[in-house]
Amino acid sequence: MPRFALKIEYDGRPFAGWQAQADHPSVQGAVESALARLDRGFAAGARIAAAGRTDAGVHATAQVAHGDLARDWDPFRLAEALNFHLKPAPVAVLAAARVDAQFHARFSATERRYLFRLLARRAPATHDRGLVWQVPHPLDAGAMRRAAAHLVGRHDFTTFRSAMCQSASPVKTLDAIRIEEIAVPQGQEFRFHLRARSFLHNQVRSIVGTLERVGAGSWAPERVASALAARDRAQCGPVCPPHGLYLCGVDYPRDPFGG
């Protein structure tokens, strides 16, 4: 059966996460339902796998999934047909590509990139409501950058790991954290860009929630290093809400979409 990779964009607000669930809407379920209308292999109950199982409310601009289909589709026509059958769900297939049988959206990935959007202003968000985490106070970008530097590299991230995390080890290598500051009317938007081969459950939201405390002046930047060294979940700052988080890129040894 031919294997296809899909690059998928979605608004996570209506969904209980990526992973298919019996009683709740999921992004995986929406895509599989669309595939079942097009391909008899999926009508028989085949599944797709994704690079990252995003939580409820988390968005994606470049999630990658793969599935084995019964029909050898033209990739462009497959993407177009899926987008027709995905309506009106806020899910879009940006690209489809034929890949070899060894390609796996999750296990073949060499890097994942996440973006977290944090709006600092008193006036409520309007156009970006539900798409950013908002706090009413100003934040010190320099202090957050100094704190973030303590987290880059290979560490035991137990402090920044959900108690429900199923990863075999808390040791991960965080390749980079970049904090971008953008002026918006009556406030600032802070964009946290994080890169790693893989992440622990809730790691990004735990890190950003902790860095926000630094930016607000409640934590000194050095306290982040102490929290990391403690390897104690109780030393973590608040875990920020999901709606500011985006899976925005997945890299492979060879880009299946030719970009």
Rank of each mutant, 00 (worst) to 15 (best):
D156V: 06
R146Q: 11
V135M: 10
I48T: 13
A44H: 11
E222N: 10
A92P: 05
A229F: 06
D39L: 04
W73L: 06
K87A: 15
A141R: 02
R195C: 13
D23F: 13
R129W: 12
V93L: 11
P241L: 07
V93K: 05
F42N: 02
R121K: 15
P138W: 01
D156L: 07
P136G: 14
Y10E: 02
I177P: 00
T61V: 10
V152G: 02
A234S: 14
P238Y: 02
R106V: 07
A225T: 00
E80P: 01
F103A: 06
R154Q: 14
P185K: 09
V171F: 04
A125P: 04
D140K: 00
P185I: 09
D55G: 12
A51C: 15
L94H: 08
V184Y: 03
Q188N: 08
R145M: 02
A96N: 08
A81N: 01
H155Y: 09
A141C: 13
A46L: 12
Q28N: 12
G187A: 13
A101T: 14
M1N: 12
R40C: 11
L200F: 00
F42R: 03
Q28P: 07
C165M: 09
P136A: 15
P138S: 07
R178T: 14
L78I: 07
D74S: 11
G244D: 07
S206T: 11
M144Q: 02
G209I: 01
A125V: 08
L38D: 07
D232E: 12
H104V: 09
F160P: 01
A148S: 03
A123S: 14
P88H: 06
P25D: 12
G237I: 00
R121M: 11
L139V: 05
R205I: 05
D232Q: 10
A95F: 08
P170F: 05
A196C: 10
H243E: 15
T159C: 08
A36T: 13
S108H: 06
R178Q: 14
S33T: 15
T54K: 05
I179Y: 00
R191G: 08
L35S: 05
T126F: 12
L174M: 08
F199M: 04
E222I: 06
A96H: 02
A30K: 03
F4E: 04
Q188K: 14
C240L: 13
L131V: 08
P124C: 09
M164A: 15
A22Y: 12
F199N: 00
P256S: 15
